[in-house]
Design a binder for these strands. Structure first.
Lengths: 213, 213
DNA sequence: AGCACTTAGATAGTGCCACTCTCCAACGGA
DNA sequence: TCCGTTGGAGAGTGGCACTATCTAAGTGCT
């Protein structure tokens, strides 16, 4: 398969594929001659994954490169690879170090992790992007004066835990470790919009039920 | 309060506040003289909300303007205002009209909405941004060959429903309709990163539990 | 009153990012 | 042979969220 066919089958313009190749989001094709390269099914698959991460998952190109690099780093154990991939996922602005709101948020997040018995979150603590993203979001709620008591956060944490179980069940339906790592990346990212849109639909539903006149 | 103080108390540069004023994300201050304006506590509050929507909620400026405009449109009923505000929330790329993946995704989403008894989602159907966002995400999963069977989506939908109940409970702790509408916007947007980061933490936890060697 | 400093408001410029265009030399099928 | 295509590289584009500059009109200290 040459560039034109890869482009046609994926729906991605050739100029964009060239850009992805340059940015190392896509491994180079097998060079046939000095000006010709051959691409396989795995290139098509990878290209579709990249497109999904960028367009559906709204992930920056540089981030997608890191995530994919971590996911296929042969020198890491499978668990480390999964961790590294989720680790590199996009996250918002960092919480301010000496902000009283962030300080309070940090304590509260620690309490939630402890109550959930999430030891990884506690051990990794401040170094984990997801942890910092959580602190920044809670700090923001605090700054705006919106409630975010531990009980309410625990409701979310418990539901997140259930989601994670369902997600990992799905991941385990794949047989080989490389497939599983790719599945974690794809499912983590692609189920995010699913979850957010379902929540918004549910809110519309619930608010219609409560405030209908 | 003048611009400089508003800037200092909010931590937002004066140049940026001027930009927000120009973009009508912030109502103009009360004009004292030809070159002087006075801002109140409500400006500070609004500015903090705008900043949160943009920075934590990663919302485009134009979208934030629409959301806020809908939230305070006096001519709408409260329920309509809440709906309109959530309606305007950012959503990804639109699903392709004549894409077989999108077609299948649409059917499946309809099934989920029916099984959940979410009549609003069904009635509004294709016109709702959240509905289209959901279809696009499911279509993407389909395109990549990842499973998204109805049972699995229903797990997410059920959990989203629980979240919505908890969210609306929180909203109802506010007394006046305007406060409630603002609360819906703020809580919908600001709990999104909370939910996503908790999910990632939970995944790390669960994957550590399963794949530890 | 004189004068340094600040303010609101408008306009133009910056930096980043995801492409997208243009060009070139080398193929390759008719 | 000849013309359209290919891979590769560099420059250009458009959108967006600011940010810097400028101007005319205040304000406060002496």
């Amino acid at each position: 398969m040459r560039l034109a066919e890869l482009s046609e089958r994926s729906g991605v313009p050739t100029a964009t594929i060239k850009y992805y190749l340059r940015e190392r989001l896509l491994p180079p094709g097998e060079r046939i001659t000095a000006t010709q390269a051959e691409y396989g099914e795995e290139h098509l698959r990878r290209l579709r994954l990249v497109r999904s991460l960028i367009q559906v998952g709204r992930m920056p190109v540089a981030t997608a490169r890191e995530v994919l690099a971590a996911a296929e780093d042969e020198s890491l154990s499978q668990n480390t690879r999964m961790g590294a991939a989720v680790w590199a996922l996009p996250h918002g602005p960092e919480p301010d170090e000496d902000d009283p709101h962030a300080e309070r948020a940090r304590e509260q997040v620690d309490t939630v992790l402890r109550r959930m018995g999430w030891s990884y979150g506690q051990e990794l603590g401040d170094t984990s992007p997801a942890y910092r993203m959580l602190v920044a979001a809670v700090a923001s709620l605090d700054r705006l004066g919106y409630p975010h008591d531990t009980e309410h956060l625990l409701v979310h944490a418990r539901l997140a835990g259930e989601l994670a179980v369902a997600d990992l069940d799905l991941v385990e339906t794949y047989d080989t470790p490389p497939e599983q790592v790719e599945a974690v990346v794809a499912l983590t990212v692609l189920y995010e919009p699913v979850l957010l849109s379902l929540r918004r639909l549910a809110q519309t539903e619930e608010s219609g039920r409560r405030f209908k006149e």
